[in-house]
Write a protein that binds this DNA or RNA. Structure first.
Lengths: 156, 156
DNA sequence: CTATATGCAAAAACTTTGCATAAGC
DNA sequence: GCTTATGCAAAGTTTTTGCATATAG
């Protein structure tokens, strides 16, 4: 999904294609990681002489509502958003890099295989589930490797 | 896990067994659902002449740290806590009733079966995953049933 | 007796609202 | 032209901090 698909989604949702919206979406697409509203604001203020933080908050929420952005949950309870390439149609999850914050889509999910068992055990009805997978992305894994190598070199 | 196990956990964590702590844990154990700090505060103020909201916030966080409580995530980004019967030792997830907020432990998880596939696909290293399962608990399912029955009776 | 816990007051952090003006369609 | 979007100021809500006092161990 690229910029054009997002614009199409805005149209469908009857949201106007404004410069700020395009910039917000572009910012997330370019960076591929999660950000707080304030971080988005600070970054985009360089491109817009006047840019209100409330505008960012409002837009992020609207973009989340229509499935362009998703929320990332962290233990501080601040708002974190990331671009969602798959939209709301396909149920999927997200992988979040603990080091750099990169967010990737994960379509693979085998939860349905055990949902019935859980329902039997708790005598409940499962409606949905939300999963956030955490670890190191490929880039940060490489970095860890070379850092470790560096460490060994020093020891030698 | 009951009150006594919690007290044991407090000891291990070098937290003192204060009346407020016991009351907070007791409150969660009795009600089995999630609450905001404010809700806990309002409920416990009936038992304590003086009880500060900061005390509640501090205790809830500490109890979460040592694994007696867990956080429940909701779309409003407020703090929600529930008792965690299994503690931090065993990896597990939680089922949250969308209607009444009841929280149940779910030990069953087959995520590890696909973790490797996800790692291959994204070329990443998975460290952890967090899942929140939502639906209707047994009690709320029954209620839905009888409400539906009532509705049908009226139609007849 | 010492270290931790608590109440209270106050501040801080984060997010939302209101409204007049601007801009997309 | 009508409707939605935005900036700015201001308020609202939730959570945290500081510190003196109280209390558990």
């Amino acid at each position: 999904m690229g910029s054009n698909d997002c614009i199409e989604m805005l149209r469908k949702a009857n949201l106007k294609i404004t410069p700020r919206r395009k910039a917000i979406i572009g910012f997330f697409l370019q960076n591929g990681r999660y950000f707080t509203p304030e971080e988005v604001w600070i970054a985009l203020r360089e491109d817009f002489k006047h840019l209100g933080l409330p505008t960012i908050y409002r837009n992020l929420r609207e973009l989340e509502d229509i499935g362009i952005l998703i929320r990332v949950f962290r233990s501080d309870q601040r708002l974190y958003y990331a671009i969602c390439q798959l939209g709301k149609g396909k149920k999927h999850h997200h992988f979040v890099c603990k080091k750099c914050g990169r967010v990737s889509e994960v379509e693979l999910c085998n939860f349905d295989d055990i949902a019935g068992d859980i329902e039997s055990k708790l005598n409940c009805k499962i409606i949905s589930h939300f999963m956030q997978i955490e670890g190191l992305c490929s880039k940060c894994m490489e970095e860890e490797m070379s850092e470790r190598d560096e460490g060994q070199k020093v020891k030698e």
